[in-house]
């Protein structure tokens, strides 16, 4: 082979991102390049550093490609935070499809310096609690809940819970020991955290599999490494990025989501689905978080309301498909 691409991420080798996205991508790229591209996947931060460094590792050429959550560097990607807002996002496929549009329209500046291969999202985040089943806003009062992002930190506090910010690896131990009573995460993460026997209650919003929030994930390539590819290999990469890869990722994450959800149900856990018509009290309570984001964007010189409306419209279109 003539080109080696080192892909770096923080999850374990059996996580859905590796098994469902990176490994199939590896195979497609290697096959379509006639073996001229050699993809090496390094899970679990094997190449060094901590998850917040991943984006810059790709930007600066420490690695060729990195996969990360944009929310791991709070404050750095404020425009992408719209998908973290409460009760907006849908399934992985839907949010990922909407993100393709949103990325083109709004995210070019934030992603400057890297060559984005895929901007995507997991299925919307559900609320998982240890002992207390949450069926209404009132049930959240006083619960200590791990928040996944700074947006949801505000969101949980607005809903009456106490948001606790902590690194993901701490979550299982923190749940067992009562440091937190619950966590806002997608089902898909259960596979690696192994917490189905700890959190026995799960709350979904609006509809089966509906959620509270989401996160923006990014598979990004070093710009110089991309530029250095001969044209025909650039085409191989292009043919396997963006929209072409979005379907694959959306499907993989939704599949993992359904599988982990089923495992929890099989284990005898309770899944509470809050019906769409009861969601108003939740929406009202968390509205200040949305207002805050819009205001922050507007203060920063963007049209916050238009971006929010756009994101909603993109999600609606994706849902309709």
């Amino acid at each position: 082979q003539e080109v080696t691409l080192r892909v770096h991420h923080f999850l374990s080798a059996d996580a859905p991102i590796q098994k469902g996205v990176l490994e199939p991508w590896d195979k497609m790229v290697e096959d379509q390049s006639g073996g001229r591209i050699d993809v090496q996947i390094y899970p679990s931060m094997q190449l060094g550093g901590r998850p917040p460094q991943l984006f810059d590792q790709a930007r600066d050429g420490v690695v060729d490609i990195a996969w990360t959550l944009l929310g791991y560097t709070p404050g750095r990607f404020p425009l992408s935070e719209v998908f973290e807002l409460p009760f907006l996002s849908g399934s992985a496929a839907e949010t990922t499809a909407a993100l393709q549009e949103y990325q083109k329209k709004y995210m070019a500046d934030e992603l400057a310096g890297v060559h984005p291969l895929l901007i995507h999202a997991p299925a919307a985040y559900k609320l998982h609690t240890k002992d207390k089943a949450v069926a209404g806003v009132a049930d959240l009062a006083g619960l200590k809940v791990r928040a996944p992002s700074r947006t949801m930190t505000d969101g949980l506090n607005a809903l009456g819970a106490t948001a606790v910010g902590m690194p993901v690896p701490e979550v299982p131990q923190a749940l067992t020991s009562g440091v937190i009573d619950g966590a806002v995460i997608p089902w898909e993460v259960f596979g690696s955290l192994r917490i189905e026997s700890v959190t026995r209650n799960h709350t979904e919003f609006g509809s089966e599999n509906g959620g509270l929030s989401s996160a923006v994930m990014a598979l990004v390539m070093n710009q110089a490494a991309y530029n250095a590819l001969p044209d025909d290999l650039k085409q191989v990469i292009d043919a396997n990025s963006g929209a072409a890869l979005a379907d694959l990722a959306g499907t993989a994450f939704d599949k993992a989501e359904a599988a982990e959800r089923q495992k929890a149900i099989d284990a005898g856990n309770t899944v509470t689905v809050i019906p769409e018509e009861n969601l108003d009290e939740w929406r009202q309570a968390s509205q200040p978080v949305i207002d805050t984001w819009v205001k922050a964007m507007t203060d920063a010189g963007h049209d916050g309301q238009a971006m929010l409306d756009d994101a909603r419209a993109m999600l609606d279109r994706a849902r309709a498909e």
Partner: peptide
């Protein structure tokens, strides 16, 4: 050398700033 210099920008900080 280039990737190394980039790697070192924040590695020391995050190594010392790890909750666990």
């Amino acid at each position: 050398t280039t990737p190394l210099l980039a790697f070192l920008k924040t590695s020391t900080y995050y190594q010392f700033s790890t909750y666990s």
